[in-house]
Design a protein around this nucleic acid. Structure first.
Lengths: 251, 251
DNA sequence: TCAAAGTCTGACCATTTGGTCCAAGTTCGA
DNA sequence: TCGAACTTGGACCAAATGGTCAGACTTTGA
């Protein structure tokens, strides 16, 4: 870290195009993002002006670059400058859009949150358990294949002790989690599922699917393959689904 | 990063008590550590001299402090000074024992490697599959409870793309992995296990068990409990074992 | 007992880096 | 068309940090 104490909160001099994810109190913004994650996520009314549009695009590019850099180097390892270069603008210019590294980080986290939360949100009591679980596994595995950086970013944040995400975990995420626990509970009660501890089942599915993104290097080094190989993806879906549904003990 | 280009390789002026984990080419040292990981890990003949003993103790303390700091902040987030303070000595003094941050990081990784590798190494074809798997799960979960920092450090390293561990992954770890894949294969062929893709089974067990260490914050936030609660630990062992062996589909 | 070897510290240095500032464009609406 | 608002980048600043150095203090072994 460097520069004038990252803690000092000083209002920006000029009116920057403050968009969704920049509130200084990152936690609050994240909680809000998480809460609306289940919903269809209305695209925040895209402004019409040509200029505003370009600005929005620029911010998108920054966010994308930041995600990829943060996910690989972590908050500390990533430098604003590296992100700026990756996004194709100057450091000072990036700082015009996002007033600080932390703010950018929060924005990235915030953006990832909905994608990360979405699959579980689709869990419905009315569904067939096996199908619902299969769908969840496939969706999460697809996420691990298509947006591994999101998964990695969250893993990184967890490993740090989730200083920014903790309020989300304790609030909106716990709400979703509890709801889904209830769903699983109901399935078990109805005899539609073997007796399992619902929380552990959910943890297990997360662990199994995210592993392919977070430990992709290891998976690739040991098996020589990755989810981007179509065959391997199918194999993984099949293996995880079979494991969760039927286990490995022979009948 | 800072200071004179971390790349410049210059020999230390004085003879520092060079111990097991400091070779500049971290990769090589790590590979060696991994290879001897299966064995009983002979304690490298503890030197007798009172002085040498104290030195060894100091190094142990440094390694411990470094593990906990690195595991929480990552290589970039951790500062030598923070580690030194945690170990109870001055930065300059720490640098006397480990000539650079990277060297220290490698030493920590190296030390963790054997612990990380051990449980899988105990997999034997002659065992009963269910028992062997159960034992593996329990051992890994115990690791997640007793040494979560090791698991986290490795997770962090994987997320970075494993620049230092890649040779280990491709070499010694792959060797162990392949051997265990063969064991599982044999079990399946003998009908002692349902037909599974062995690599995915191993990945699954790792994922399931390490999750409780790497995502401990999340687990705690959502379930309110952690592996250090005896009851929760038992629950986790039971849940993961049941899942892997029998799945959740009702019979 | 005494010098050689080992251990430890505070001062110091150079680089990286988060962030600021200002002046020079650019775009937009009236 | 013109001024106000918005963008952009180069120079700059100060803190943090990895690492060095020379000298002081200890321990050890002959």
């Amino acid at each position: 870290m460097a520069g004038p104490s990252a803690k000092s909160v000083k209002p920006p001099r000029r009116a920057a195009p403050r968009a969704s994810g920049q509130s200084r109190s990152g936690a609050r913004a994240l909680v809000k993002a998480a809460q609306s994650a289940g919903e269809t996520a209305a695209p925040v009314s895209p402004p019409a002006g040509r200029r505003a549009q370009a600005g929005e695009a620029r911010k998108g590019a920054i966010l994308g670059a930041a995600l990829s850099v943060f996910a690989r180097l972590g908050l500390d390892g990533a430098s604003i400058d590296a992100i700026a270069r990756a996004a194709g603008l100057s450091k000072a210019n990036l700082l015009y859009y996002y007033p600080s590294k932390d703010a950018l980080y929060v924005a990235v986290l915030e953006q990832g949150l909905s994608r990360w939360l979405a699959p579980l949100a689709r869990f419905r009591r009315e569904e067939d358990p096996a199908e619902a679980i299969g769908a969840l596994i496939e969706a999460k595995l697809a996420m691990s294949r298509d947006h591994p950086e999101v998964s990695r970013l969250f893993a990184l944040e967890m490993l740090r002790g989730a200083p920014l995400l903790k309020p989300v975990l304790a609030g909106p995420l716990k709400a979703v989690f509890d709801a889904k626990v209830a769903v699983v509970q109901a399935w078990v009660a109805a005899g539609r599922l073997a007796p399992v501890e619902p929380p552990h089942l959910i943890f297990s599915i997360w662990a199994l699917t995210q592993h392919y993104a977070d430990f992709a290097v290891q998976v690739r080094a040991l098996s020589g393959r990755s989810l981007s190989d179509k065959g391997f993806m199918e194999e993984a879906v099949a293996a995880v689904t079979a494991l969760v549904l039927d286990g490995v003990r022979p009948r």
